[in-house]
C-alpha cells in the first residue's frame, strides 16, 4: 500500500435487513376459457370464408372485364384482316404469274398439273401459316429489328426509372451489335 490516494473500493453487501423470502409457491398460467376461444375462432373463420368467396368473385369479374374488351373488338379486327387476306391472295396470284411467265408449261395455281386449291364444295379457302408470304423474304430486316428492339428496350427502361429525360441516340445502342 504505497499510494495512499488510490481508488477506494466498496464491498457489495446485501441490503439492510437481509433479502426477502424466496417465493416458491406454485403459479398457474391464466388460461382463456374454451367458450371464449371458440367464440372468437368461429366468427373469424366464417369471415375468412366469406372474404375468400368475395375475392374469387372479384378476380373473376376483373378477368371477365378484360376479356370482354377483346370480344367487343373482334369483329373490327377480323373485318380488317379479311380484306388484308384477300388483297394478299390477289397479289400472290399476280406475283406467281409474273414469276413463271418464261415457263410456258407451268399452269398457274397448280403443282405440275396437280391443283392446289381444293375447293370442291365452294366453301372458300383460308390460308395457313406463311402460305400468303411465300413470295416474301422472311428474314429481311432482321438486323434492323434487332437494332430497334434494343433501342426500344432501353427507352422503356429509362421511362420506368426516369433517370434520363432524353432518349439516347440510336448509335449508342447499336454499339453492342
Amino acid at each position: 500500500m504505497a499510494s495512499a490516494a488510490g481508488p477506494k473500493y466498496k464491498q457489495d453487501m446485501p441490503p439492510k435487513g437481509g433479502y426477502g423470502p424466496v417465493d416458491y409457491s406454485r403459479k398457474i398460467f391464466k388460461r382463456i376459457k374454451g367458450k371464449y376461444i371458440l367464440g372468437g375462432f368461429l366468427p373469424f373463420t366464417a369471415y375468412c370464408w366469406w372474404m375468400i368467396s368475395e375475392t374469387k368473385r372479384y378476380n373473376r369479374m376483373h378477368q371477365l372485364e378484360n376479356t370482354e374488351a377483346n370480344i367487343a373488338l373482334e369483329p373490327l379486327l377480323m373485318a380488317e384482316k379479311d380484306r388484308m387476306v384477300l388483297k394478299l391472295f390477289r397479289q400472290n396470284c399476280e406475283l406467281e404469274e409474273d414469276l413463271m411467265k418464261d415457263n410456258p408449261d407451268w399452269e398457274f395455281g397448280t403443282l405440275f398439273g396437280l391443283p392446289i386449291f381444293h375447293d370442291v364444295k365452294k366453301r372458300g379457302i383460308m390460308p395457313h401459316g406463311y402460305e400468303l408470304f411465300a413470295h416474301t423474304n422472311l428474314f429481311y430486316g432482321e438486323e434492323l429489328s434487332k437494332k430497334y428492339y434494343t433501342r426500344s428496350q432501353g427507352a422503356y427502361f429509362e421511362q420506368i426509372t426516369r433517370r434520363n429525360a432524353d432518349i439516347p441516340s440510336n448509335e449508342d445502342y447499336s454499339k453492342n451489335y
Binding site: 369483329p75 380484306r83 387476306v85 384477300l86 372458300g124
Partner: peptide, 10 residues
C-alpha cells in the same frame, strides 16, 4: 372459311 362473302358487312 370464305372471307369474300362478308365484305360488305365488314
Amino acid at each position: 372459311r370464305n372471307p369474300a362473302v362478308c365484305l360488305n358487312e365488314g
